[in-house]
Design a protein around this nucleic acid. Structure first.
Lengths: 166, 166
DNA sequence: TGACATTTGCGAATAATTCGCATTAACAGA
DNA sequence: TCTGTTAATGCGAATTATTCGCAAATGTCA
């Protein structure tokens, strides 16, 4: 009996500036390549610091969903003076601004991903801890309807499905 | 701009023994009234302790979704020697056995509720911290299809919707 | 370039939850 | 009903993720 957690998330709150096409081995600064991202920060009255740039760069290059500790280790390759507290603070800032999405899992530190330009969901295998992206579903439609009936406009949603292999 | 978290959960994993019809002011022991519940524990090779009985009693009488601290305070009325650790341990046990559901919220301690006999979802108002139940939706159908395509059988699911008043 | 509010780094502080362990007690079998 | 086995409890200490306070550093805008 294998235990699995299916995590589905979608977001339609704001237009994603532009998807980052940074090659996996190009250690470039995402914010330098993406003036749009700089502007997102500035528009929110926030400063574009090298720490924030490094974090976004790393996050843009990863296709998994790192937690703060993993992020911190990777970012240190770009900036070996950055502190964990800054990573925490930055993730919070980026989340508020809408550049990253926070995935709150049970019994594990929060994970993060860049805001995806396309809706997609997630599947977490609890045994391996692996978090896999799966194609988006039309769950969003149902949710939109439900939220709409309550007078709300969905900003984002996050579904956790616990399932058993059949 | 009011911020709201809509939490939707459903469960279809196992037949709920029987819904508890304990009156709001009847300070009775739920496990004594509900031999089914005792059996659920025994079937899992677990012992029916007074602590577990008290916790289930309190949880059955509440229509909100208490966290461990709130639960602990209320349970102390029935058993003033119970410890917080026991409440934590018991909630974990009851969750594994399928008697309660754990609601993991962001930036707040986990909340719990008795496994509902009928599907229902939740709405959390972040400002007030209030967690309101809303009628179940057919999201479950969509999820079942998605999970089914992946070869999984849904045990439970948990959706968090962040929405903004329109 | 200079003023100044933001942001950072550091380490200490919090908060939720778990753990270790000696003691207690549930319950299956005699 | 009594008893032995073994799970469960209570206590407080330990862990873990995250936040906070504050002085020093640094983006940003005039």
């Amino acid at each position: 009996m294998s235990n699995v957690q299916l995590i589905m998330t979608c977001s339609n709150l704001r237009k994603h500036p532009r998807s980052l096409n940074v090659g996996p081995n190009k250690m470039v600064n995402a914010l330098n390549d993406e003036p749009d991202l700089r502007q997102v920060l500035r528009d929110a009255g926030l400063r574009v610091t090298p720490q924030r740039a490094s974090i976004i760069t790393i996050l843009s290059e990863t296709d998994d969903h790192p937690n703060v500790e993993e992020l911190y280790e990777k970012v240190r390759a770009l900036d070996d003076t950055i502190s964990v507290a800054t990573v925490y603070r930055t993730m919070s800032v980026l989340e508020n601004v809408g550049l990253v999405r926070k995935l709150v899992l049970d019994d594990a530190p929060a994970r993060y991903e860049m805001m995806p330009p396309t809706n997609h969901d997630h599947l977490v295998d609890l045994e391996s801890g692996e978090l896999v992206e799966i194609p988006g579903t039309d769950i969003a439609d149902v949710m939109n309807r439900v939220a709409s009936e309550l007078g709300y406009e969905i900003v984002s949603h996050h579904t956790v499905i616990r399932a058993r292999k059949r």
